[in-house]
Amino acid sequence: MGVDVMRESTLMWLQYITGLAILVLGAIHFASLTFFQVSNYDQALLYGTVVGRYTNIAWASALELFLALLSYHVFNGFRVILLELRQDGLWTKAVNVTMFLAGLVVLLYGTRTIALFMMGGGA
């Protein structure tokens, strides 16, 4: 997502890979909350259950990975849409930089939330 840091083909390759990974990880995530859940689905969304999940290292790692994949896929996708709306050098540069920073902010803030919960704190 950087400005001419990567080739467009590399960015799009990552876009496809992250899209596929989100699909797979999303399916596993959904299945873990429903089919593989020992208790019923209502309990899966209780505050205590959710916090308990964050403290599990495997769950926290999966959520962090999900967050990283989504941050890239969403903001790169948004960048592509915005680049098609208007065409000039300044706009291209502004879109590239803004989307990179926005993705980074979401990733860092989400990571902070996951880390705090894992360490027993709260957001």
Binding site: R7, E8, S9, L11, M12, V80, L83, E84, Q87, T92
Partner: peptide, 9 residues
């Protein structure tokens, strides 16, 4: 072709 407005659009 491998640019912001090239083949990937």
């Amino acid at each position: 072709v491998d640019t912001n407005h090239g083949v990937w659009r």
